[in-house]
Computed example of a mutant assay.
Amino acid sequence: MSAPTLAPRTTPSGYLLPSIHSAPPFFTQQPNPNTQAVVTEHWTKLILSYARHRRLFMLRVEDAEVAGNDWDEILRNEQIHRRLLPSHLEHIITDMVEKNRAVYEPARQTRSVLLYWRTPEEWAEVLHGWADATGQLNTILTFYEIIEPPVPSQLSGIPMTLLRKAISVLAKTSRAQIISVADGEGVRLLPGNSSR
């Protein structure tokens, strides 16, 4: 078979694409459900890994329809003249939501998702760790101060929906308390299971 070489390659953004990205069938929805399940799992891992690399939080079916967006490096492979079709991406997105690796955002539609390259539980730990490291436990913080901190952090630019989910996780373990503040909502992050 004189197909293009199946080898990993690095994108302009510095992301290392797996060798499967050079296989034309990877971009085609497979008729066999078992084969498609494997392809979908590979795409899911690729999407989440790439999103983490680029700090992308949203993925839309339109990203497969229109060129020139943040997702081009993985949704297209010009070397083999292939691209992921919108219907295939929609199938992958549905699977990701079913497996709790993404959530429809906004709700009540199926063409746009918030990606969980970190789960809300993992973001909760990042948030709590950040507050602890910056000496802000027991301090009332607005959501804006968390999303747009004076010193960039892992939380910079996190979507509000994801921040709320992380805070909710912390609230359930008595490590966060939601507080009304003058310009909306705030949170007090608490030390947690300290033995007093």
Rank of each mutant, 00 (worst) to 15 (best):
Y116Q: 03
S112V: 00
R188W: 10
T28I: 15
I158C: 08
E185Y: 06
I167N: 01
A64S: 07
M1D: 14
L163R: 10
T44D: 06
L141G: 05
H42P: 01
A64K: 01
V181H: 05
W123I: 06
E41F: 11
G135H: 03
V126M: 06
T40D: 15
S87C: 14
F27V: 11
L48I: 11
P150Q: 15
P25S: 13
I92S: 01
A133S: 13
N32G: 08
P120K: 03
T173M: 12
V97T: 12
W130Y: 14
S195H: 08
I179R: 13
K172A: 07
S168A: 08
T142S: 14
T142L: 09
R111Y: 05
S112I: 03
L84A: 05
A107F: 02
A107D: 05
L170N: 06
G157S: 10
Q30I: 12
I20W: 04
H128A: 09
A102E: 01
P33V: 13
A64P: 01
E90K: 15
V66M: 02
S168F: 07
S168R: 09
G186H: 05
H91S: 13
M96C: 08
L84E: 03
H88T: 05
V61G: 03
I146V: 07
P150N: 14
L163K: 14
E41W: 11
A131D: 08
T142F: 05
H91F: 09
Q136W: 03
R175F: 06
P106L: 04
G68V: 00
A171M: 04
D183N: 14
T44K: 07
V103R: 03
E90T: 06
S112K: 09
S180F: 07
V151F: 08
V66H: 05
A102W: 00
H81N: 14
